[in-house]
Design a binder for these strands. Structure first.
Lengths: 148, 148
DNA sequence: TTGTTTCTGCGAATGATTCGCAATTGCAAC
DNA sequence: GTTGCAATTGCGAATCATTCGCAGAAACAA
């Protein structure tokens, strides 16, 4: 997926873009900030503050991308922070452990065959969807059952 | 669905329970507070403040219910406020208009046949899931296309 | 009725996100 | 490449949902 062409290509937006592009899971705004700071430190040495991305700028960049339909925003139901990832590249759904919060990617998408959507089709133009499965992962189940 | 038996049955919890029980869509904590205030006004007349539910109490009640698996909490991806509804009673998924935010109930659930979940089954105990379809409703599409 | 334990009222604290505004930067026309 | 203007950023302050803390008020078992 290419950097959206209808918005200005600025330094900070390009950095946010790069970070999302190299990430293999959705990131929070804060995580993006941390990675940006890390990159800066790697290049300019400890104590560098110049070049770090300000959180509000990250949010604004993400907003711009989201409006251009280039990144997608999701909120997992047990937290109130949003996760961002590049749209396109195919999309992903996750199974989230309610104990350790680990995310496991689901294979396939329940809407792949989109047979369940006929009720809406007619009156509703579908742009996207989210799916989230939650429960307990193996490790946590074992761990929790020991405690009893 | 019955009021959970493992938590104390207090006045405020019962009111939250009633409100959720009579609602036909998921509600935010604030909406619950408003309905509670409304009920109180209806019974005690204008200006009654006694009997209104404090927001933090509502959150605590919802938390208690959620722990007892009696209500479910969802966060729609374009906002950061949570929606609560009684669990059980079958569950619902919604199509949300990105313009007017109106929610239309989806018929059926893509996981009804749960064929897509085999990748997870083995290692992951599934407790629940959320599905959310977003796009534009008929009215908003018409309205938006006029503007161009 | 009493004692213990669990809630609630209330406000203050927290954490994510947004806003406001002056200074800066991207980019298009010269 | 310089100039000019609009879009963007840095930065902090504001907002909004949610959570915490604590003292007084219910629940409910004995």
């Amino acid at each position: 997926m290419e950097f959206p062409s209808n918005i200005r290509k600025t330094q900070s937006r390009m950095r946010v873009w790069e970070i999302l592009n190299h990430a293999n899971t959705p990131l929070t705004a804060k995580e993006i900030a941390i990675r940006a700071a890390q990159d800066t430190k790697d290049q300019q040495g400890e104590g560098a503050t110049e070049g770090a991305l300000w959180l509000s700028s990250i949010y604004r960049a993400l907003d711009a991308f989201a409006n251009a339909h280039a990144v997608s925003r999701t909120v997992l139901s047990d937290s109130q922070e949003a996760l961002y990832s590049l749209a396109g590249n195919g999309h992903h759904h996750y199974a989230i452990c309610m104990n350790c919060k680990k995310k496991t990617e689901l294979e396939g998408c329940p809407f792949a065959e989109e047979k369940t959507l006929h009720a809406v089709d007619q009156d509703f133009m579908i742009v996207g969807h989210t799916v989230e499965v939650y429960g307990y992962c193996k490790q946590c189940r074992e761990q929790l059952s020991k405690k009893v």
